[in-house]
Nucleic acid binder design. Sequence first.
DNA 1: AATACCAGCAACCGCCGAAGC
DNA 2: GGCTTCGGCGGTTGCTGGTAT
Length: 236
Amino acid sequence: MGRSPCCEKAHTNKGAWTKEEDDRLIAYIRAHGEGCWRSLPKAAGLLRCGKSCRLRWINYLRPDLKRGNFTEEEDELIIKLHSLLGNKWSLIAGRLPGRTDNEIKNYWNTHIRRKLLSRGIDPATHRPIHAPLSDFTITFAKGEKKDVGILRRDEEKTRSSCSSEESAPWRQYRCPDLNLELSISPPFQQPVEPIKGKRRLCFTCSLGLQRTKKCKCNGFLGLGAGVLDYRTVEMK
DNA sequence: AATACCAGCAACCGCCGAAGC
DNA sequence: GGCTTCGGCGGTTGCTGGTAT
């Protein structure tokens, strides 16, 4: 048996919200706060799905929203965060006060994608268009070097003074000027050699989080089980 | 002036994970 | 452990207004 709908669709409005609906929703949340979205529509006298109310509030009616154009600084921050996090719009939005995930997602799809393409950068991979696909890892290490982005393997070879990190057999991707203020320490394990110079990590495992059913990678730092000890996660 | 096309954005849909029973 | 419910998320759709022809 499938999941039941979140509301009675036959008796709900759809489409654009009216001023009156907005006012009702604002008044209700001001009086009662954000609570159970499922019961909110009935309590507020709205013929809307709870999800629809939540979306309308979060994306449009919330008082702390910053309306208006994105600044150049916000643009660059979004690009950097996207290169690190991928399409994790809610995480990206969390780093941009007053912006919503939906807003950033729309902005990405309409403006930034084009901007990157005009720079000759693939917005999906943040690599130069037509560059061959290969593996890379993301490091959170605080590097003193100012070089940002992708180290090609042939470039690595030509570096005369490589540190042990830089001479790693797989590619490194570093975002040195992006301070996420998040440090993750996996449980101590003996280092695992990467497989023949290749290492594939899914996003979940690259963050050291619990692996998903779809995960086929080798787990965080090759731990296989992909279990993260949350006692070692520090949020500064 | 009418029509076609396009870009931007609000809103919906469906899936997933967590929590509760 | 399995099922249901709910909140949250990302992908997609479709409406609207602006611009080109």
